[in-house]
């Protein structure tokens, strides 16, 4: 079973529709058992880090997601969902994240307009099966005011907006998209297609 974690924030329907088009059927749930035993877990997110992490903790979903990540099966975070995968965020204070990727979530450079909102190009840093349908400088849709600052060891692709902004990150089975693939037209659909193939490969080889 493929699962989208429902913790009461953001619009999950467009993610679910986009995944379905990519051949990934999902259920939306906040049940711990379903998350731990899933084949694939997607962590969506719109809103503030503080609210998201406290909602996850309130429901015990943080532990469920970490347990799922330990199985080695694919876990994907989108936008705020990606930021939640990191150690810590400085959005409206200082909050601990899921700690599945090393690094911190910090505010974008002040000289630029914030939020970083619109279509920006992907610059590929590391080859990965997830990027197999992506061409250099394909555009994707970003909406965020904070970004992941780390060693960038986990960075597969980035964009530039005053800083190097990690756009697609991957630490083994833990994957994050800072932008919204479900809102990124054909390029987003291509990424989700590769993700769907990756999930199927994983399921059939285990």
């Amino acid at each position: 079973m493929n699962v989208i974690v429902d913790y009461g924030l953001g619009n999950i329907n467009s993610v679910q529709t986009a995944l379905k088009i990519a051949g990934i059927d999902t259920v939306i749930t906040d049940e711990i058992e379903k998350i731990i035993n899933a084949d694939f877990v997607l962590l969506p997110g719109v809103g503030a880090f503080r609210d998201a992490i406290s909602l996850l903790k309130e429901k015990g979903l943080d532990i469920a997601i970490k347990k799922f990540a330990d199985t080695g099966k694919p876990l994907v975070g989108i936008c705020l969902g990606m930021q939640l995968l990191y150690d810590k965020s400085y959005e409206y204070g200082e909050y601990e994240g899921l700690g599945l990727i090393s690094g911190e979530i910090v505010k974008l450079e002040k000289e630029k307009k914030i939020p970083h909102m619109g279509w920006n190009n992907l610059i590929i840093k590391k080859e990965d099966t997830l990027l197999k349908y992506i061409k250099p400088d394909d555009y994707v849709y970003f909406v965020h005011s904070y970004y992941a600052k780390s060693s960038n060891d986990e960075m597969l692709a980035y964009t530039e907006y005053g800083e190097i902004i990690p756009a697609i990150v991957r630490n083994k089975n833990v994957i994050g998209f800072q932008f919204h693939p479900e809102k990124s037209g054909q390029v987003g659909a291509n990424l989700l297609k590769a993700l769907g193939e990756m999930i199927n490969d994983y399921i059939s080889s285990n």
Binding site: N11, V143, A189
Partner: peptide, 8 residues
């Protein structure tokens, strides 16, 4: 609209 299009 949300079901049909994949841009913001």
């Amino acid at each position: 609209v949300a079901k049909k299009i994949n841009i913001p």
